[in-house]
Nucleic acid binder design. Structure first.
Lengths: 231, 231
DNA sequence: TATAAAACCTGAACGCGTTCAAAAATAATC
DNA sequence: GATTATTTTTGAACGCGTTCAGGTTTTATA
């Protein structure tokens, strides 16, 4: 029989401190030196911990990125709360959220390549479509739901439910472009966001047009297919 | 001064033979055992060559994938030539090309994850948006141009020039989905291709509608932006 | 306070991709 | 054929991510 440690002391365990120490050191090093330079050995040394011990808390180097990913995600969610307050225009809301995203991730552009490289692997836990990423994915989707629901835009009822997921997919596409964007201060991505947000809002306005019916149906079917693929 | 070897003997050099031997052995092993199992040491041993020598001909393990990528691409182009012969329906042409793509890459699905993982890295030569991939990308785009031009579909003149590039982008998206597709025989991807090809053809038919003018403009602007990003 | 259990930590070792100085084989030149 | 230049080949070595058997410290129990 395994006995649980007293829950009120569990959080102040030595282990928790060590984990936090390693994690903070890792984020520091990732920002300062990028991914390749941040070797597990260098990290362990800087944190004043043995190599094996670092692995006791983070099963792989990839898990460091995961922690990192979670953090920028939190920052983004937080930043958006203030931005959406009192704004009713869908275009402005979506634009604000997307720009906040770019602002949040900008400091880490130098090692975003590695992040994406890892995330692209179907076997990786970091893969945005994976089960492990579901919590972040869902929270992110909820943000886009709020963008739409808090606006005064009228959305055809057939696609209303799918729209947040569509916007989440869109935001992944923008992130993909951003990673490959070598322009100064990511100007190109910012420009692309302006154009595409404009396009999306126009498209949404068109959804009620009878001419659009076959397109609506097709898009819904595609989204259903994509959802079923999540397993 | 460096002297060139006699060109007529250059191709039958001992080196060329060794290179071919390593390459064939690599493709064999990749197919049989996947990427991780195909270590450079195992490859060298099977090819009856020293480890250092393998590196003399392939600067990195990644280059093996590149050779592999080029080969499946050739196969696809070849397969399409026969398929497009005598068919005028845009929908059928596009569908045939996409299905041929899936057929070509299916045998390698098991290690496609690694391929994509590598390709996603902005620094990688395999990255489909990179300079190094330009020849394959352009040849592929040309294929999609032929799909459109050889059909009887009427395409609004404003987007006619961009359509092949749009279709190439679409085909990259499908490939991305395919990599993550764990369904039997990639059924989901095949279904997705059917749906999306249908949607695309409908969209193309709609392009001439005046209502679509702002969308056309926006799409063109996005494509211009994407093209400028290729540097 | 003594003892058992759990949590925490260590460093050597493994296999990997990759590099490199130098040896061996081949080709070019005289 | 002897000498030189070039190409081809070797295997040891490096640093990396990762594993693991076993030690040390902390916590729970008596």
């Amino acid at each position: 029989m395994k006995k649980e440690p007293k829950p009120e002391t569990a959080k102040t365990n030595k282990g928790e401190q060590t984990r936090a120490l390693i994690m903070e050191t890792a984020l520091e090093m990732l920002r300062e030196q990028g991914y390749e330079q941040t070797t597990m050995r260098a990290l362990a040394e800087r944190a004043g911990v043995s190599l094996g011990n670092a692995y006791h808390y983070f099963n792989s180097k990839e898990q460091l990125i995961q922690a990192f990913y979670a953090r920028t995600h939190e920052e983004h969610i937080e930043a958006c709360a203030a931005l959406l307050e009192g704004e009713r225009s869908l275009k402005k809301r979506l634009l604000a959220v997307m720009q906040a995203k770019l602002d949040t991730i900008e400091p880490y552009h130098q090692f975003a390549g590695v992040l994406f490289k890892t995330a692209a692997d179907p076997k990786s836990h970091l893969n945005p479509f994976s089960k492990q990423s579901a919590p972040i994915r869902e929270e992110s989707t909820r943000l886009f739901a709020e963008v739409v629901n808090g606006s005064d835009a009228r959305v055809h009822k057939e696609i209303r439910d799918e729209l947040p997921r569509l916007l989440w997919l869109y935001h992944m596409g923008i992130t993909l472009f951003w990673i490959h964007d070598t322009s100064h201060s990511r100007r190109r991505t910012r420009r692309l966001v302006e154009i595409t947000v404009d396009l999306i809002v126009k498209l949404i306005a068109l959804t009620s047009n009878p001419l659009m019916r076959p397109l609506r149906k097709a898009v819904l079917e595609i989204m259903r297919e994509l959802r079923e693929a999540e397993q």
